[in-house]
Each structure stands twice: as C-alpha cells, then as structure tokens.
Design a protein around this nucleic acid. Structure first.
Lengths: 253, 253
DNA sequence: AATGATAGTGTATTATTGACACAAGAGTAA
DNA sequence: TTACTCTTGTGTCAATAATACACTATCATT
C-alpha cells in the first residue's frame, strides 16, 4: 500500500505514460529441485500475493511490454513468453478498487479504473533469475505451485488458466528449452514433464518418445558425481526445436 | 467514411460509453455448399473490407460485448465464441488513423487513438444468419475463405490467426455443433472437416473415428431425395459433446 | 568385492491409424 | 423390369504408435 503522496505521483505518471484500462500480468514458471515454481510478489503491509504485472506504454507493442515487465522482475532478457488470455471481468479488480478508492478522487485515481489484463506465461530457467520486488512489493519470491499462498484479485484464475494452457501445449509443442539448464539428463527432463503434468511417466517410453522428436543432442560426456550410474547429458538441438515449435508435433488428422 | 458531423457525434458517444483503446473483432465462420465462409463488412465509399467488430461498453464483460457485436451483425444469440488473441501492434490501425486524422482534432477523435483489439472467432450455422451492415458499412456479406477480398488494417492477420487456431482446435475438441444444421449426414460432416483443414480425408476412417468419439446419435430416418443411396442422418449428442469440449479428445501424454 | 540405487536398453502386447475393396440402396435410362 | 451409375455403409489387413514390463550396466559406498 502506498502513501497518499506516492499514490498521487504514481497516478500522474501512469496517466501520462500508460494506456488506461489495460494491464499485463505474467505467470513466470520456473523449475527447481523437481518442483514447479511461480514467481509472486508480496504487497507491502498486506497479506496477499500478486502475479508480476504492469502497464503498457502508450506507443509500446504488447509483447515488448511483457518483456520489459519481466526483465524488471527477473533480470532476464529474451524470455519465452506466450500470450494466453485476456481477463476482463468488470469486477475483477474490485479489491484494488476498495483499497485505493478513498485515497484519491476517482478522476485522478489510476487504480480505481477498470482494467483488462492480458495474460502472458513465461518459462524460465530458475537459476538465471534474480527476483526483484517492485515499488509496491515487499518481496518477490519463487513459490511452490503445490503450496501457493493466497492470491489477490483474479490472479488464482490467471495462474490456473496459464497452467492449463501450458499442459495443453505440451501435447503439440516442445518445451523445456527455456526451463532447463543448457545441459541436462533425460531423467531431469522427464521430471520436468512429470511436474508440469503432475503425473508419473514411464522412464523408457518417455525416452523413446522424446528422442523420436529429434530435438535432442546427446553429448559425449556423462554427468559425473552422483552416487550412481552416470547419466548421459543432452542439449536441445535448437534448429529442430524451433522447427517443432512452429510446426507442432503431431498432425492429428 | 462518415461525414464530419456524423464522426463528431459518434466520437462523443463512444468516449462516453466505451472503454478507450480497446476493440473487439470477430471472425465469423460459416459453412455452406462445401465452402468455408467468413462474414465481412464493406466500408461505405471505400474499397476495403473489415471484420465485424466493435467496442467494449465501460461496465461490460468482454464475452458479452463480443456476443452483442455478433448479434448486431448476424441476428444470432448464444453463438459459440472463442477468444483467441489480442492484437496490439501500435501501427495496426495506421490506415484508420490516416483516414480520420484530418476530420477532427486528436483530442476528441476516437479513431485516431491506438487500439488493441481482442480477437474472437465464432462458428455459426450459415443458414441462420441474417447479415446486417452497421452504420459504417455499405454491405455485410459472406465471403469465400478461398476467395477473400482485400482486408483493411491487420484484419488479414487476424483472420489467418483465427483459422490456424481453429485448425489446431480440431485436434482436441469437437466442432460442428455450431456449424451444421441440427440433422446432417456423415458425408456432410466430413465435408466440413475437409473444408476447414483444406485436405481430403478417408471416408471410412473418418466415420470410424468420428463415431469413436461418442458424440453422435444416429437417427432412425435416412436422408431421402438424393439420386443415390440414402445416407443416415445424425445429430450431436449434446451432453457428450459438451463433455468433450471441456475435456478434450486425446490425452497426448 | 558385495551392495544399493539409478541409468540404459529391448521386447512382447495392445491400441490406433491408414490404405484399401466390396456390397447395398436409390434413382435413371433403356 | 432391368441394367447402370453414383453414393453410402461396412470390414479387413498391415503399419505404426503406445503401453507394460525386465534385465543389464555403472558408479559410490561399505
């Protein structure tokens, strides 16, 4: 929560630079130690958490705004980002409205406007990210997908929709390039799929199918150090990977 | 193209009632005599065609706006509508901008604003539709998907994206309920699929697969009148159809 | 050297898809 | 009435993909 003065300044700046009524919210998925993580912000002096989001500069392409917002929160450039839905229930930011409505008259109060929010989801390598809170937030954290805190506004819906879309996408597009480190083992990749889908997959069938897609290169060296048989390392064949991204895996009909 | 007076009135009304910077465009697919059709509007005194679209009332849910807009153009209620993408290139409405910029000063000129447009596609039964032009249009017509006129703005992109999304959707969702008459034959349904996908399918395999989904009821009576063997009539099993819509056809993993 | 945990690989079984051919019904023309 | 033509309905075989499952290899630890 901002002070009245901060709020006023923010609103003036916002009205000057951003398109009104439109926001962007990002669901940033990361993967670490076998768990799906989502990047969340904790609002100052408040219980609830939010998805990282922001507004669209007046002359800015949407995609660029989403990238800019993510760069501010994660430090990352060139993120895999996918627009997946617009959320526009007129009541969706009621909580926001209640919170700010008494601090500034409606005419100059940016936050009491109705906002449509464009949902993007991002897949990022957990290790590359430096979570950074914004001026409204006390914290920016990775949270377990299985153990989420209470989300404000409609952000639980946005998160769920993003996850559903991601799971669907798994059926006809490769993922992983943006979630895994450069070099990884087959069991590690399988763990990613199992985590996203929230179900166990057969080791052997997974490997056969995965290799069948032709988007992996097996490296010469194995991963040493574990107390067990050293697994092979793989990396993505970027050319084939990108081709698969645009063409999709199976034709269906 | 409007007169200056009409434009001014329109803009005043729009600024009062609609959210600025946001529009909705609809790609309305119909199916007739073996051809995919799209509903297009022809602007008065101009060469180009547009997708039917409109704006979002200040307190209106997006979905409801899309339905309202479609009802105005087609007379239809309860249409199958699916949001598929937001188009937000800052330059996307440049043509509009050029066209209207000299007629009213920018401050009161609704049409020189930047607009993000939310794309919806609709599947409708061709026969039920009464195309109705709006106040900007000289005509509202079904156009052949294979023989499209020149589309203004980025509407060709919007249409292509809608079609791609529809084709993808065919792989994991049933369609047809909204495009076919209540009763239809298997060859007719097949023709629909062939038209959407723009490729021939095997008659026997199509039937086997289609029936396998369990969303069709075979009716007792055949379709009489043709000069050949009378085909069976089918109707959709609405309950199973709706279940398939939400659950999807094949699990993939 | 034995142990335990994990990785790599192969195979038999079943389900799904794709290609294909023939029989049946309905009008048409002799 | 009968042969003909066109279209629809159905069955089957082969290829392919998905599933279930078992054994061997390797490394670190003891």
């Amino acid at each position: 929560m901002l002070t009245k003065k901060e709020l006023k300044e923010y609103c003036e700046n916002a009205r000057e630079n951003y398109l009104p009524h439109i926001s962007i919210d990002c669901v940033v998925f990361g993967f670490h130690e076998g768990l799906m993580k989502v990047l969340l912000l904790k609002i100052k002096n408040e219980g609830g958490w939010y998805l990282p989001g922001g507004f669209l500069l007046k002359p800015e392409p949407i995609e660029m705004a989403a990238n800019r917002i993510l760069k501010e929160r994660t430090g990352l450039d060139e993120i895999f980002l996918q627009q997946f839905h617009v959320f526009g229930d007129p009541e969706r930011s009621k909580e926001h409205f209640e919170m700010y409505k008494d601090m500034l008259p409606a005419k100059e109060n940016w936050f009491t406007n109705r906002f449509l929010t464009i949902g993007y989801y991002a897949l990022v390598d957990f290790c590359d990210v430096n979570p950074a809170p914004d001026q409204f937030s006390a914290a920016c954290n990775w949270c377990d997908l299985n153990d989420l805190p209470e989300l404000k506004l409609d952000h639980a819906l946005i998160l769920k929709t993003a996850l559903d879309t991601l799971r669907l996408q798994l059926n006809y597009q490769p993922i992983g390039y943006n979630l895994m480190p450069r070099e990884f083992t087959m069991p590690e990749l399988q763990k990613l799929y199992e985590t996203i889908l929230d179900k166990k997959l057969d080791r052997r069938n997974f490997q056969r199918r995965m290799l069948g897609f032709g988007i992996l290169n097996r490296l010469e060296k194995p991963r040493k150090g574990g107390a067990h048989k050293a697994p092979y390392l793989y990396s993505f064949d970027l050319e084939n990977y990108k081709a698969a991204l645009t063409e999709g895996f199976k034709g269906g009909w």
